[in-house]
Design a protein around this nucleic acid. Sequence first.
DNA 1: TTTATTTATGTATTTAACTACGTAGTTTTG
DNA 2: CAAAACTACGTAGTTAAATACATAAATAAA
Lengths: 160, 160
Amino acid sequence: MNIIDESGILAISTRLQRLSEQLRKDGALVYKSYGIDFEPKWFPVIYTLYYKETLSVVEIANEIGYTHPSTISLLKELEKQKLIRSKKDKIDERKRLIQLTSKGRELIEQMKPVWEVMKTALTQITDNQNNLLRAIEEAENKISHQSFLQRALQLKSEEK
Amino acid sequence: MNIIDESGILAISTRLQRLSEQLRKDGALVYKSYGIDFEPKWFPVIYTLYYKETLSVVEIANEIGYTHPSTISLLKELEKQKLIRSKKDKIDERKRLIQLTSKGRELIEQMKPVWEVMKTALTQITDNQNNLLRAIEEAENKISHQSFLQRALQLKSEEK
DNA sequence: TTTATTTATGTATTTAACTACGTAGTTTTG
DNA sequence: CAAAACTACGTAGTTAAATACATAAATAAA
């Protein structure tokens, strides 16, 4: 084992990132192995639109937890792939309403069995004595009550 | 709850990344609140050199799990901060041996109490019914035996 | 002992996110 | 209802990682 893994909790951010990157990269290869032209980074947008039908740019950004500029660049790629289309909101002219195209919906049907395989493989990997997904949820929940920064500042002040 | 969080395991890569980013950002602010000029991304290099004393570029890259070009750019920043220095290996002229400077070692002493506070705060956040760090270790371990890709391909072939 | 292969490092470019900033509609307020 | 504040979207530039490529030194092989 290397020093970073031994450092434990202090390097947790690095390790989260590394794990995320590994899964994302393999995810891309799984789609490819099925002959599907789809990038894992598109998943949040596509999946959200599949359930919500029509959303504005900022609404999508909020759903997927990205900033709106990042979301715009994803939307541009998806529009180029003809998986989504957009039209102006007639009531609020500032808004651009995004929807899946029929090509997008077809692709989703094609991906569903792939998603099932991925789910199974990911469950194999993450469902152990400690369930990674549950662990993430629990940590997110803790942070939502009091952030890492707030906790650290409080400990600092108590220390004095 | 939003759609992405509901999608569960499929969006796990996105969520790992998001959590990592949050912790990294708050980490930066914690150092700042102590008046310490230190970026969280430097931690893996500094921490590794603290325990290993002298390492080459590629050795550091392997320890911290980054590619060597990424490591080189971190080393450049750290050299600019005068936290590390490097010299040619006399035996193998290709190698550049990296060490902490005395300024680097002093900074580490200054950071130690901050690291203790961080550890406590991070433990509060991550030690729940499912311990996040243990969950990561368990997942990494599973992957090391058989990757996400290999598992998915196997499930795919079994399916047919 | 040349030649081929491998290893260590470095540079250039790409990628996927971000922040900062600007503009144009919409809503609220005095 | 005009001015101020807010919201939605877009662009530009930055950042932190990666990949791809290049070079030089060391090692192995013919």
